[in-house]
Design a protein around this nucleic acid. Structure first.
Lengths: 342, 342
DNA sequence: GATCATAATGAAAGCGTTTTCAGTTCAAGA
DNA sequence: TCTTGAACTGAAAACGCTTTCATTATGATC
């Protein structure tokens, strides 16, 4: 905590009142060039810088945005691969506008707890909130924010009533594109290894998978639609199950790249070839998709765009609150690589 | 920004002075049970919660720790794989002690800029600083922090004079262990594909590589000691160069897992086998090391431990400043997998 | 019953700003 | 010379809390 000079010190040195100094600092009109210069000299001389706290006390604003990162419980390292790009782009955008960022990480269980957000916001005086979550944002959370009249944006999910400004990815569309791509290559028997379906995006991917099959008139099999944790082990284990029974899928759509990598291990281990015997596709376009053999067809989410957009919308809301609520669904790009090329 | 009741409101309702209410809230002694109960009733009734800003203004403390994340420029996604575990463990530790965390990300160039930290700390009133960096922390940064008497800890590097409390990893020791492991398997001709040597840990890995070779009486070759960016492409490209000339290495030590994955690609592509023809080892134990074929021998850094330790040391420094400065070097664990087993 | 320590309380100063309101200065117009 | 209004400036009141210091109530001790 710096101590340094105060307004009063500057005022004394410049031979003016604190009010005038304040005016100079905040660039208000009606200060004569002479006094302005004198004050600025004094500021430099004393190496003065305003006390943010005192300023906040009177203005009622802190210049701080709270970034709440809601996570799986226990934490799944693979989610980091898209969390940090988001944090990064949000950070850069907000910094450029002179906002400070305070982060809070919590499990989705904590976040759903009735008192959590309340306690957090009571302890922390922020001007806006950005919620990064893969879970539905519960009603009481929304109402807590609304009653505080605190501008906020939800990134990665939404609330039950679509009352919040939120940004999501078109998971269903992406999966549909993957299925179409695989069908065009002649595949008929599809398997799906998903992540935890309590995560909104994993659920969307599952739904997208099922409805795409239906749309294209392809059969679905209960035993080829499985879920687990979002990791290599799940992919490996479930793929082994797939391979042990009938029908055997010729194309497997996975909830993320790690799962897909696990599935590939199981396939290769069995002496089968990818994609000749079985095609595999992942999701997220992490580095994993580029180092497995063969390289993995996957989906690239517009993370940077999403982060910046979230920050932008929050800024908009901050400057003119209570405008029309909106939901934005960002399209994703499918990246076709060897694992699905026939 | 919540408005809500103030101390004065509570005092009025409870029929006491604000001083007494303050005492109750802060758990000071010398408040009779009767008045204490009355005050607490009033607090509940008004749903009062203290204004953090006002409190900070008078106490001079904010309860906020600044976490400065210094990054490669431009940003290298693979570094995220160890940044977020660190952030996570630091966050969890500090939260448990009721601290809030403000993050600032910047490139190492920005961070080295004379005015950067100054401007940052002037704008932001924090109680302590945690610097996560892979670059030497310059003297003027240290002196800025020292003159402000701001407790701080450096995680991942140090300053030229070892004046700061800092935590590092035993990169050299880890590389030495890898080289020993490979030598024991009979390898004689070693190659190294490192990351940017301006990064402290990459430089330490290089130095560790060279001194281990020397220690074990193994020859070094200029043309087999290369660097590049910390990514798959570098590994691929440099390995191709290695394979195109003489002598050809039988063991390649890489600066991180991504580089190693690239090297493996180049080797396999050439029709050579891993580890029979060439052994490859990486660093960081990311998910990449588990999905390449064969699985990659690598080094696991004690990230969680490092994060918690950093937070702990900062707390120590906060409670009793100016104790003996210390430098902690954490040992790393080598994880032996198929890519190096003969 | 007088004395004295101790516990309990309140008044008020202060933390470093912003902002309102009133006052002063000064040039221009009458 | 007198008015008038605009431009400039300062005094003082907030903002919501903590903390010191003085004061009063409460027992305990002689």
């Amino acid at each position: 905590m710096q101590k340094g000079a105060t307004l009063k010190d500057v005022a004394r040195l410049a031979g003016v009142s604190v009010a005038t100094v304040s005016r100079v600092i905040n660039g208000h009109a009606n200060v004569s060039p002479r006094t302005k210069a004198a004050v600025e000299r004094a500021i430099v001389k004393l190496n003065y810088s305003p006390n943010t706290i005192a300023r906040s006390l009177v203005t009622g604003r802190t210049g701080i945005i709270s970034l709440i990162i809601v996570q799986e419980d226990p934490i799944v390292p693979s989610t980091w691969s898209y969390e940090l790009p988001l944090v990064q782009s949000i950070h850069d955008y907000l910094k450029a506008q002179d906002w400070e960022i305070q982060i809070a990480m919590c499990s989705y269980r904590e976040f759903q707890e009735p008192g959590f957000l309340h306690r957090y916001l009571t302890r922390n005086t922020v001007d806006g909130v950005l919620i990064m979550a893969a879970w539905m944002v519960e009603r009481h959370v929304v109402s807590e924010l609304k009653t505080r009249q605190l501008p906020y944006v939800v990134l990665g999910s939404h609330d039950p009533d679509y009352e919040s400004i939120c940004i999501e990815y078109d998971n269903e569309g992406a999966i549909r594109a993957l299925v179409q791509h695989l069908r065009d290559a002649g595949h008929q028997v599809f398997g799906h290894i998903g992540g935890p379906t309590h995560q909104l995006h994993m659920n969307q991917r599952l739904q997208g998978f099922l409805s795409a099959l239906e749309e294209f008139g392809l059969p679905t099999w209960q035993r080829l639609t499985k879920f687990g944790d979002s990791n290599v082990e799940t992919g490996y284990r479930v793929m082994q199950e797939f391979l042990a029974g009938e029908p055997r899928p010729t194309a497997v759509v996975c909830g993320n790249d790690d799962i897909a990598a696990g599935a590939m291990n199981a396939i290769t281990e069995k002496g089968l070839r990818i994609p000749e015997d079985i095609a595999v596709v992942g999701f997220d376009d992490t580095v994993v998709s580029q180092v497995v053999t063969p390289k993995l067809t996957t989906v690239r989410m517009p993370l940077n765009k999403a982060g910046v957009l979230a920050a932008q919308l929050l800024m908009d809301e901050l400057s003119q609150p209570n405008r029309e609520r909106k939901r934005i669904v960002l399209p994703c790009e499918i990246v076709i690589r060897a694992s699905s090329l026939s």
